[in-house]
Design a protein around this nucleic acid. Sequence first.
DNA 1: GCCCTATTGGTAATAATTCCTATTACTGAT
DNA 2: ATCAGTAATAGGAATTATTACCAATAGGGC
Lengths: 138, 138
Amino acid sequence: MKELSEGLRQEGYRFTRQRRIILEEVRKQQYHPSAKEIYDAVKIRLPNISLGTVYRGLGVLTELGLIRKVEHGEYARFDANLAEHHHLICTDCDQLLDVDAPLSEPLNTQQFKARGFEVQRYKIELYGLCPTCATERS
Amino acid sequence: MKELSEGLRQEGYRFTRQRRIILEEVRKQQYHPSAKEIYDAVKIRLPNISLGTVYRGLGVLTELGLIRKVEHGEYARFDANLAEHHHLICTDCDQLLDVDAPLSEPLNTQQFKARGFEVQRYKIELYGLCPTCATERS
DNA sequence: GCCCTATTGGTAATAATTCCTATTACTGAT
DNA sequence: ATCAGTAATAGGAATTATTACCAATAGGGC
Ligand SMILES: [Mn+2]
Ligand SMILES: [Mn+2]
Ligand SMILES: [Zn+2]
Ligand SMILES: [Zn+2]
């Protein structure tokens, strides 16, 4: 939690019990919890916490780079897995899964320079069958 | 418009004035209009059209593959440009722009097979500076 | 402990999208 | 062209994720 308290201080934020527990609960989740799901988990430990505080907390945690915000579908999801990885949305079961590996050949962002674009980063979303659904198909 | 009337019929949908004009107006837009912007444009020609009809129309047009739905940020945008292209979100001016070219090296989707994923398609979002903002920086 | 002020809890507001229903209007058959 | 069956529409209400507001609270530097 040192990275949290120091990260917060560095930006003039305060280290609150709420923010600490929000981070702990996001890290506990294997998958990609929504704000509401994190709220429900935190509420067990802090029964009086409000949904707004969770949204605000997730915002600063994202800003500090301690979690990732994954925008897909009708609501945002959050990800404590900071390793470089992409996401696959299963066209069969609709799950959002980690593809735990960077690209075998990283995207060449220089190719866009000829068109005047200065690409800083990119996001890849894969669509297809997750391992479970792929197996069921065969 | 033949592709529209036949496409609709093929799926058991009806060819309505509203759907025809919605498609025409999406095609008129250079950039990536929101449902509301399309509604405003269509409303000039069909003053009584309702927003719900525009949403429904955009839905079937997307389903028929006559337009693309671009989900990014707080609202969906629509795209009549069916050529294979990616999008760049400018980190300076926040615009969503076409990068009118496929990748010089298409993503090798087979590399994910080893992990059990059956990738059918993928979407790449680029973040960086658009040509205008890139020029202003130098 | 004291003070300053960032943060919180509770609640209202916002806004994109979907849902509901009586009425309208495509479309295939007569 | 008329008709009947039903998909689609207009208009409005409902839903829902997220943000805004504000009086009360609590970090943290002294
Ligand atoms: Mn992930
Ligand atoms: Mn485009
Ligand atoms: Zn699946
Ligand atoms: Zn720009």
